[in-house]
Simulated scan of single mutants.
Amino acid sequence: MSEGESGSGTAKSGRTGRRPGNTDTRTAILDAARTRFADTGFDKTSIRAIAGDADVDPALVHHYFGTKQQLFAAAVDFPADPEVTLSVVDRAPLDELGVTAVRAVLTVWDSPAGPGIVAMVRSMFGGGEPNLARSFLLQVVLERVRVRIATPDDDGRARISLAAAQMIGLLTARKIIGIEPLASMPIDAVVDAVGPSIQRYLTGDIDTGSW
């Protein structure tokens, strides 16, 4: 990445005292990011603030981790690049969000990254505060979908929480508890069964006025 390379050079020559680009620098950035994200959350944390905490040039943060979202994923040890899945959902028409989201998420769960995601969910069930995994789910993954379904009369928060509950229940039953036949059902069958329910939560006729 040319920006990162030029930033690394700047850190070495133009900013005396800054850490050079090496493994120790990467670790320092991750440590600083975990602390910042835990203390102030995703939205209020900036790359510049993390770089300052780690005593590196901001260009080095981009060089090692890319975007702030990708840095957050690394900070919580997310085993897959969330942008791959989220971009699939972003491209889906609004009336196909449910089936698209279920298929995209199931595909990741059934991939080699699946065990790591299950471990992350387990940590959300039993972890203490501050829980970065929970923050990642709420502030990055769910917020990305909520923005798409929000309207002037409905901010989408109740809808997205219902959809998340269904998906977490699906993951728990399929991957953690192993309830059959759900645990062994082909992805297409699960998508056909669960996708319409997720779509209803996201865009269907639900009375959110009294919530």
Rank of each mutant, 00 (worst) to 15 (best):
F136A: 03
L138A: 11
M167D: 04
E143V: 02
R174C: 11
Q139P: 00
Q139E: 15
G169H: 07
L142S: 10
R157P: 00
R174N: 09
F136D: 02
I160S: 03
A133Q: 12
V141K: 00
V145R: 10
M167N: 02
D153A: 15
I168E: 09
V141N: 02
V141I: 15
D154L: 12
L171A: 13
R134M: 13
A158P: 00
G156T: 10
V140I: 15
G156D: 14
R146V: 07
R144H: 04
A150D: 06
S135Y: 02
G169K: 05
Q139L: 07
E143W: 00
A158Y: 01
A163M: 15
A164N: 14
A150Y: 01
A165C: 06
T151S: 11
V147A: 14
R144C: 02
R148V: 08
R157F: 09
I160Q: 02
Q166G: 04
L171Y: 08
Q166I: 13
L171Q: 12
R146G: 13
Q139N: 11
S135W: 00
R159K: 03
L138D: 14
G156V: 05
L137A: 08
E143A: 08
P152I: 12
V140E: 06
A164E: 05
R144S: 15
V145D: 06
A164S: 13
G169Y: 01
V140T: 10
R134F: 00
A158S: 07
T172E: 11
I168S: 12
R157K: 14
R159A: 13
R146D: 01
A133L: 01
G169I: 06
A163S: 15
D155N: 15
R146I: 05
